[in-house]
Design a protein around this nucleic acid. Structure first.
Length: 676
DNA sequence: GAATCACGCATTTTT
DNA sequence: TGCGTGATTC
């Protein structure tokens, strides 16, 4: 049965094999783009199991659910008949949640805490700002929340922020930091940051607990190590224990999340930080043709702080990378659309084989228009296009409240949903009442008749809300009856009518009602799939995994995607568009320390998405916020070795390379015809 | 409470 | 330029 794995391993290249077989001690696998990284990780897991390591002692950590899911599937198929062996493959956040659910009482928290997602965080912060009366328009809740998050993660404020307001923003953020954290505790809630921070705290303050986990997770693997922040780094170190059988896999050249806390020095300093570490470089690329790799290597070698790596391939050089200059954005977009139509016809490619990749989502517009004009199907990935799921949030807040009545933020959210006459003034008064009496808002709702300034009628409404919540606690705790309870809840609060009342256009309202239905369905599905299903469990799954993720895979037509989201994907034909100074590198990054380097990595990520053909486009004039402004080609274009590129002028459609092959085939066709 | 207007803002994104 | 937000008005 395990010969299957051995056979698979024998097919690996020498470097890959080394990475798979080096199981003891710290190991850094520098996995270049397209070097078969996932293959190596999954095979390493399989190999450990085959070697007799109990699956329970193996942990693989990823950043996204998608990555975890894929890895699980691949390990499963590798293990063949030994599928009963299930190593833990999880995201950082789910792993920490798992640990906290068991251990958080060591830190003085309650076990049944609620998880606050980004929008909960923002509502909470908004409330706090109102309390402190810093509802100064000059500061966005988002920027304050961002600062607080940095502080929580022990991160220094980035150098570049404009000095003047930086101090004020900093001061306000620090003043809100404590209040925010206290509020979370009072609401029996933790945010995404806390999941990691508290677990780290737990390990630091309770060596006995840490010891238990180091004894369980004897072999650890971390994917996308270049994206780890300081907390995650410390977490990995601690969990590594004495043995330090820690294998981190990543690519410093693809570190593009510095702006949200990822610390590239984690991977750069790995050898120094983990004594006796071994480094394996995966440089053979199985994705791209030679010229594309030459271009990628040429660009990235201009970064100074890096481990050093050069991609190569056994495939031929392939066509050269084309550089296209167009007068304006419409010309650029039209050219790309035309080119796609042409290549599709000439080379019998599917639309799905093309991608248009840009630095910022707002650059997608002209391309969407050009594609629509030519009737070319496309899918835009990411951006704000995801529909506003207000209805889901509303209902989820009810559920959160039922699971945890101390959750003031959720109560505030649903108090007047559907509208029942509990306006801002009433909520303000009840909040004050709660604060002064040292009780939760929920308790205040129940005792609202005692609150100052609340009329009897209003008080009745408030206690009715509390009543609904209380009445549903029991039905939701009954095994296998949650979906039913949910339906009942929707009916009881008259949520459908509310949706039709709020959304004027019936089509929109119908859509919303459908979303509600599918939300109930997903709850039913959750119940069906999980034997020990609980409301808390469902809410967790909801917070930690995107319920909609399943359907984004069936992207149809040409893919339009940002550079960031394109990481990890590949396409036969890639158009990297808007390659101009100010866009890539982005003008805001220019003044940030290490900003240009990160932009260069972004460019590298873009280039390495292409398998066969790569087109880099830029314009002479670009419309920016309505105004036409002259643009300069990206400095990164100059860094591409000339041997690998061919520059097309403003009016050319075909490169000389392409004209030549076209001419050749034209002549051979003529000859064939004459021969007949 | 809804409709309208003026204003300001405008990378990148996952859990 | 175009969108989303918050204020203003009926």
């Amino acid at each position: 049965m395990s010969s299957n794995i051995r056979k698979e391993i024998s097919r690996l290249n020498p470097r890959q094999k080394e990475a798979v077989l080096s199981t003891e001690g710290p190991l850094l696998v520098l996995a270049g783009a397209g070097s078969g990284k996932t293959r190596v990780i999954t095979m390493r897991v399989a190999h450990l199991i085959e070697r007799g390591i109990p699956a329970d002692n193996i942990l693989a950590v990823t950043f996204t659910n998608k990555a975890a899911k894929e890895m699980r599937a691949r390990v499963k198929s590798l293990l063949g008949k030994r599928q009963g062996e299930k190593p833990l493959i999880s995201t950082f956040h789910s792993l920490c949640l798992r640990i906290l659910r068991k251990e958080i009482e060591h830190l003085g928290y309650r076990k049944d805490f609620t998880i606050y997602d980004t929008s909960d965080q923002l509502s909470l912060m908004r409330n706090l700002m109102q309390d402190v009366k810093v509802l100064d328009k000059s500061f966005k809740v988002e920027s304050i929340m961002e600062r607080v998050s940095w502080a929580k993660n022990g991160m220094a404020v980035p150098e570049s922020t404009e000095e003047t307001e930086a101090d004020d923003l900093g001061a306000i953020s620090t003043s809100l930091y404590d209040r925010y954290q206290q509020a979370l505790q009072a609401f029996n809630a933790v945010d995404f940051d806390d999941l990691l921070i508290l677990t780290l705290k737990l390990f630091k303050e309770h060596p006995d607990v840490l010891k238990r986990y180091t004894e369980i997770f004897r072999y650890i693997m971390v994917d996308e190590y270049q994206d780890t922040n300081s907390i995650q780094y410390q977490f990995v170190r601690l969990l590594g224990g004495q043995d330090m059988n820690v294998c981190v896999v990543g690519d410093d050249d693809q570190s593009i999340y510095g702006w949200r806390g990822a610390d590239i020095s984690n991977i750069l300093d790995f050898e120094k930080d983990f004594a006796g570490a071994k480094v394996v470089r995966l440089e053979q690329n199985y994705r791209s043709m030679g010229n594309i790799l030459t271009a990628a290597n040429g660009v990235i070698k201009n970064n100074t702080k890096r481990m050093g790596k050069s991609l190569w391939t056994e495939r031929g050089p392939g066509p050269r990378v084309k550089i296209i200059k167009k007068p304006g954005v419409e010309d650029e977009a039209k050219w790309v659309a035309d080119k796609i139509a042409l290549i599709r016809y000439d080379k019998k490619r599917k639309y799905e084989e093309f991608a248009i990749i840009y630095r910022a989502n707002l650059l997608s517009r002209p391309f969407e228009e050009a594609l629509r004009l030519e009737r070319i199907p496309y899918t835009v990935i990411g951006g704000t296009s995801y529909f506003e799921r207000r209805e889901i949030k509303d209902l989820a807040s009810y559920l959160k409240l039922i699971a945890n009545p101390s959750d003031d933020i959720s109560l505030l959210r649903v108090a007047n949903v559907p509208r029942r006459g509990l306006g801002p003034t009433t909520l303000e008064r009840l909040s004050n009442f709660a604060r002064e009496s040292g009780i939760s808002l929920f308790e205040a709702f129940k005792k609202s008749s005692a609150a100052p300034g609340i009329k009897d009628k209003t008080s009745a409404l408030a206690s009715e809300v509390a009543g609904i919540v209380e009445r549903f606690i029991e039905p939701f705790s009954k095994k296998g009856h949650m979906a039913l309870a949910m339906k009942e809840l929707v009916r009881e609060i008259g949520y459908r009518d509310y949706l039709f009342e709020v959304f004027k256009t019936p089509e929109v309202a119908v859509k919303k009602v459908e979303n509600v239905e599918s939300f109930i369905d997903s709850l039913a599905q959750y119940e069906a799939e999980n034997t020990g299903s609980t409301l808390q469990g469902f809410l967790e799954a909801m917070a930690l995994t995107d319920m909609e993720e399943e359907k984004d895979e069936k992207a149809m037509g040409v893919t339009l995607i940002s550079l960031h989201s394109s990481k990890g994907l590949e396409f036969p034909v890639v158009f990297l568009v808007g390659l101009e100074d100010g866009i890539l590198p982005h003008k805001k990054s220019i003044y940030m320390e290490g900003g240009i380097d990160e932009e260069r990595r972004l460019c590298y990520v873009g280039i390495t998405r292409a398998m066969e053909e790569l087109y880099l486009t830029h314009t002479v004039n670009r419309v920016k916020y309505g105004k036409d402004e002259p643009s300069t080609p990206s400095r990164f274009i100059e860094e591409i070795p000339e041997v690998s590129i061919e520059v097309l002028g403003e009016s050319e459609i075909l490169s000389t390379e392409e004209s030549e092959t076209k001419a050749k085939s034209f002549f051979s066709n003529i000859q064939a015809m004459l021969g007949d």
